[in-house]
Simulated assay, not measured.
Amino acid sequence: MEPINLYPIGIIHTPHADVKNMPIQPVAAEGVRGWIELFPEYAEGLKDLEGFSHITLLYRFHKIEGYKLTVIPFMDTQERGIFSCKAPKRPNAIGLSTVKLVGIEGNRVHIEQVDMLDGTPLIDIKPFYPRYDNRIEGVKIGWLEKNKDLPLEALRSDERFK
C-alpha cells in the first residue's frame, strides 16, 4: 500500500512543555487554555467555525518515538493492545481531542481543555456536532469498565508514554 503523506496545517500552543502532570484527556484539562496558530494559507478555512462551541483536533504526537503494540495503560496494571487504549506510542502517533472553541482572531484559534504538548503539529480541525459525533447508545467500554468512575485528577500523564 502507498504511504500516506500528511502535512501540518498549524501548530497547537499550550502551557504543557513536558508530559509530566499533563492532562491525558480534555475532560481533565477544564480551564486550561491554549491556541492554534493556523498557517496563513489555511485561514480562509476558518470561515463559519466561530458558531461552534467545540471542535475536534487531529494532531501528531510529535515527541513520540517508535511504537509499542502492547502497553500498560495509565489506568491499569495489565498489558493491553495499543488499539484498546489511548496511549500515544501508536504506529502512526495521531492524537484526537475535542476541545472548547473560545474564539478566533485572524488565523489564531483560541481553545480550552488542551491536553497536548506545546508545539504539537495540527493535522485537521473538525466541528463537533453531538447528533453525529456523540450519539451512540449501548456502548461497551471493555477493560475500562472497572475504571469508569476514576476521578478526573487521576487523568495525568504517565512517564511510560514518553
Rank of each mutant, 00 (worst) to 15 (best):
I12S: 00
D118E: 06
T56G: 14
I136N: 10
E153L: 13
E41R: 11
L57R: 15
V32S: 00
Q25N: 08
F39G: 04
V109G: 01
R60D: 07
A43G: 01
V102R: 11
L144S: 00
V109K: 09
T56E: 14
P130C: 14
P26N: 06
E137I: 13
V71G: 04
R90L: 14
E79D: 13
E50P: 09
G51V: 07
I11G: 02
F52P: 08
E50R: 13
W35H: 12
V19A: 01
T77L: 04
K148M: 09
L46W: 03
D76H: 03
L150E: 14
E137Q: 15
D124H: 00
V102N: 04
F61I: 08
D18Y: 05
Y67I: 05
K140A: 10
L144E: 02
I24C: 01
S97M: 00
N147T: 04
F161Y: 13
I94M: 08
N5I: 05
E30A: 06
F39D: 04
V32N: 00
R60I: 05
A87T: 08
I141T: 13
G31V: 14
R108V: 08
I24H: 00
A154V: 07
L69N: 02
P121I: 03
F83K: 15
S53I: 12
H54A: 11
C85A: 10
I36D: 00
P88E: 03
R33W: 05
I82C: 10
I9S: 02
D118N: 14
M1N: 14
F161H: 14
F161K: 08
Y67A: 09
D18M: 00
L6K: 03
L96F: 12
N92Q: 13
D149K: 06
E112P: 04
F52I: 12
I94T: 11
L117G: 00
I125P: 02
V139E: 08
P88H: 08
G106M: 10
K47E: 06
L38S: 01
Y129C: 05
K146A: 14
H13Q: 05
L101N: 06
P127Q: 12
I4R: 10
F52C: 13
D158Q: 09
L150A: 12
P91T: 12
A28G: 02
I111C: 09
T77N: 09
D48I: 03
Y59W: 15
V114Q: 11
V32C: 01
E44C: 08
A87S: 14
G142E: 07
G103R: 15
L38W: 01
E112I: 06
F83Q: 12
I125C: 05
S84Q: 09
Y7K: 05
E50T: 10
G51P: 11
V114R: 11
P15H: 08
D48C: 03
G119M: 06
G45S: 06
N107W: 04
I136K: 15
G51M: 07
G106I: 11
V32H: 03
P23H: 00
V99M: 11
R108K: 15
G95V: 02
H16A: 04
H110P: 07
G138I: 09
Y132W: 07
D124T: 02
K100N: 13
C85I: 10
I36M: 02
Y129H: 03
M75I: 07
M75K: 12
P127S: 11
M116N: 04
